[in-house]
Nucleic acid binder design. Sequence first.
RNA 1: GGGUGAUUAGCUCAGUGGUAGAGCGCUUCGUUCACAUCGAAGAUGUCAGAAGUUCGAAUCUUCUAUCACCCA
Length: 997
Amino acid sequence: MGRMEKSFDAAEAEPRILEKWDAANAFAAGANAKPGAAPFCIMIPPPNVTGSLHMGHAFNNTLQDILVRWHRMRGFDTLWQPGTDHAGIATQMVTEREMAANGEPTRQEMGREAFLDRVWQQKVKSRGTIIGQLKRLGASCDWSREAFTMGGAKGDPEAGTGPNFHDAVIRVFVEMYNKGYIYRGKRLVNWDPHFETAISDLEVEQVEVDGKMWRLRYTLDGGETYAHPIEFDEEGNPTDWETRDYLTVATTRPETMLGDTGVAVHPEDRRYAHLIGKTVTLPICGRSIPIVADDYADPDKGTGAVKITPAHDFNDWEVGQRTGLRAINVMTTRAAMALRDNPDFAEGCPAEMLGRAIERYDGLDRYEARDAIITEARDNGWLDGIDEDRHMVPHGDRSKVAIEPYLTDQWFVDAEKIVGPALDAVRKGMAAHEAGAFDETAGYTRILPERDAKTYYHWLENIEPWCISRQLWWGHQIPVWFDQEGNEFCAPDEAEAIEIAKAFYAKKDPDQEIEVKVQNLGEQSLSPDEAGRKVEALATVESGWVADREHGIPGTLYVELRRDPDVLDTWFSSGLWPIGTLGWPEDTPELDRYFPTSTLITGFDIIFFWVARMMMMQLAVVGETPFHTVYVHALVRDEKGKKMSKSLGNVLDPLELIEDYGADAVRFTLASMAAMGRDLKLSTSRIAGYRNFGTKIWNAARFAEMNECKPVPGFDPAGVTQTVNRWIVGEIARARVAHDAALDAYRFNDAANGLYATVWGKVCDWYLEFAKPLFASGDAAVITETRATMAWVIDQCLILLHPVMPFVTEELWGQIAARDTLLVHADWPTYGEDLIDPEADREMTWVIGLIEEIRSVRAQMHVPAGLKVPLLQAELDDRGQAAWDRNEAMILRLARVVAVERVDALPKGAVTIAVEGAVFGLPIADIIDVAEEKARLEKVLGKLAKELGGLRGRLNNPKFVESAPEDVVEETRENLAAREEEEAKIKDALARLAEIG
RNA sequence: GGGUGAUUAGCUCAGUGGUAGAGCGCUUCGUUCACAUCGAAGAUGUCAGAAGUUCGAAUCUUCUAUCACCCA
């Protein structure tokens, strides 16, 4: 008897199987590729290097692994490229947190260089975590090619072990700079006062908060007054007015008033029209500011007059640009008031008031300043009132603090210039996809599901400049050097920057001796407001003529270069993931072979962050779209549909689930729920269900082993003769075709559920049961054929299931027989529906139907499960007879009936079993309850009547026969005939019942 | 406010014009030599509502309601 265990011990086996794959180098690029195979390449969305695996990763990587294993088994030249992301802010944050916990010196105390060394240590320590977890999930990446988005950057202790990603990033910056796609400018950006860096608008979350709307009175200059309506009639027309010598402005952010440079009213607002061009005096600092006309002021909102602070509000900035108002920055990088030594602020303020304002407000945090200003307004009578107001406040997605619109010098990608090809590529790809003529090699890209293409279009069509500089230390430092004049020299490295600077000055003055040196200001981080001023300060030094402090040789032009201290947005580097991981800018064989890559699988939340930018950047840099298909999946939620979050405590840890149920069950669950574009609600009962499925397969294989079913070399599924065997071969073929079609269409749920239905519902429920009487038949030929067929069937199940459930299938593959290859490299079948034998199909459908009918009647009539009942045969057509003859043993066994007796008519009290072309009966009059049997039959008749009504209704409608397709009409007719036959049999049965009842 | 999507069995969801399905749960029965992580049988639906197109609508169109997400 069997050597096999009763079930699969995932916890024991899975690590062992991982080692087997590893030892065989099974996931290496090109492993199992057929000669001349087409490439198939997936880039992993790089997880944060300090992160750990959450459900979203598990889902994302399961889908990738299914595609990758499927292609590898089909003999494609397959590469799944792994790696991690340096994740600027997140990693810097994690490291600083750990440093604080350990009592290490702060980042500022240790300085930039030492801090970077510290982060590298953290990276080396952390990276194993998530990589190990991906392996545990079964991800079949080529781990020897692991990449890092900062690989090869200065200080990388593992430089040389992976692609030099840093070189690629710097190279791209330089190229894009030289093409004019990147520029530096003073702009209002989203400033995170916690991390003291600019962030892109995508990294901003709008949070609705309960706040207030404060109304403040700004006094009109020069004794000016106007009539403000205070009473209205029923139609809203003013009926009474009061004379005011002030304008009331409404604001949610009173602390910014110190930076106000104007008040805007709508040009057509009759209340204020004559005031346009006049001025008001700003309380506290006494600055006189103009009243300007601008559409931005909404007459119906608040008072219709709005204070304008161009340096601290995006809308106000626009108004300022249109109406010529200057911008006054009144805050520090930590969002405290910066009034002292602030010439912009001082300008136009009377000295006495300025001194008081500085005294009272300088250095206050923005929220303290708000309270203090409101107190002063109340005390001094210019607080007009306070309204409760619920409004959206932008927050940093990492820091969770309110972001501050802030005026600084930053680097931008002029996205508008590179967006065109990225839009074109997807428009063409989607058009081809919708036309059913998608060609993977045509150089365009489709996004699935189609809905997400719309999201992509919408964002790209309204693209804004992308702020790519970050005031962090951890990241790719911007490769631009400034001289004293503020000239920019962009180059891949310092030496080249020096050369460019030399050439620049030589052109200006060919006879001049020139010496260029790089003066690194070391660890000092330039916060932008400082940066702005410092560059200006340096620029005021007499152009370039800086005395060389060491040599002091007269007549030489000394140029000092200083590198921009800022680093690049992490997404700038991950935008190059496809080419960077393959070795670009080197002309590597991998780049040649695998780029453009095939499919990208990613979450909908990073379509903008990552997908769109990869499209733009790859097209801008190498002129090709990075992948032909983007499959966008949704979110994994908890079983109640809530987003999983640590604060809610509803997080399911994929690793715990793997421990409890095995990786296969977790993977199968995720795949089976991956309906395109739908969030999936995950519950452990579902996972347990698929763990049971693994056990089911295990036991099917165990059954095969116990019956000595060994794979027969050269077995030809088309050559089997037994109906049952011909039938199951056809079922397997059908499953293989449906499975490939599902995966081809990225319908992972159909793929997984289809296999589930075939393996459990056909192979285990029926084929194994049918095989039992065959094995007991004593017919050597039948037994031999059935053993070979069953071994083949089990093998096919393992092969087809392997991409979804790699562990248990690999284990069984090894246990069943000695093989030439591991299952991971087994050949994927190509047989098609020609293996389906329609006759066998029809016959087994009939047999199954008969067995089910007998079982159903038995259960409903309360025939004891263990009791074997005689079966009477009243009618049987030729086809039925043949089917009976071939399958008698199976029917008797599975329906638990004995000794078939032919009768001309069913005796009174026999229960009727009507199937196509046959009437059987169970003589169980003494067991059954006549009333119950009558009720059963009448219920069946009721169902039939409903169906018959529908069918006849359709066929009696001449328009249906006329306009419906012929096969539909034919099918309806056949259906009607069959139902009528059934109805007649049931009526007979009822009549007989009436005789005894 | 704009956009996108959803609403189908108790729950979670499939279902792209031919008359409704799966898994889980539930009820009853069952320890026959693969499997109790199992087997057999069973119940449950105005496919959110209304109107339209069509021979025929869960499916296409319009409107309404509720919910979710994205962008302001």
